[in-house]
């Protein structure tokens, strides 16, 4: 097992954790076109639900 190959498989395990694991605090998404950041979206601002009053 070469050092490079070991590093690569370890990177797969690292990326799996970085992208799918860890505590999720308020997240942010950056939307970009042609490498230019255009829109910054806050998850917290996006998630809200619509409640209606219960019918009498």
């Amino acid at each position: 097992m070469s050092a490079i190959a070991e590093r690569e498989v370890a990177l797969v395990d690292l990326l799996d954790r970085l992208l799918g694991g860890g505590v999720v605090i308020a997240g942010e998404i950056t939307l970009a076109v042609a490498d230019v950041d255009l829109v910054h979206v806050s998850l917290r601002a996006l998630v809200s639900s619509v409640e209606t009053a219960r019918p009498k």
């Binding site: 190959a5 690569e8 498989v9 990326l15 992208l19 998404i29 939307l31 970009a32 076109v33 490498d35």
Partner: peptide
């Protein structure tokens, strides 16, 4: 170790949480 490194090219894209458009 090859069978354990197949995802690498695909995962690389997910790193930057942007949508990359073909310029």
């Amino acid at each position: 170790l090859d069978p354990f490194a197949r995802e690498l090219p695909h995962l690389g894209k997910a790193l930057s949480r942007r949508i990359d458009a073909d310029p």
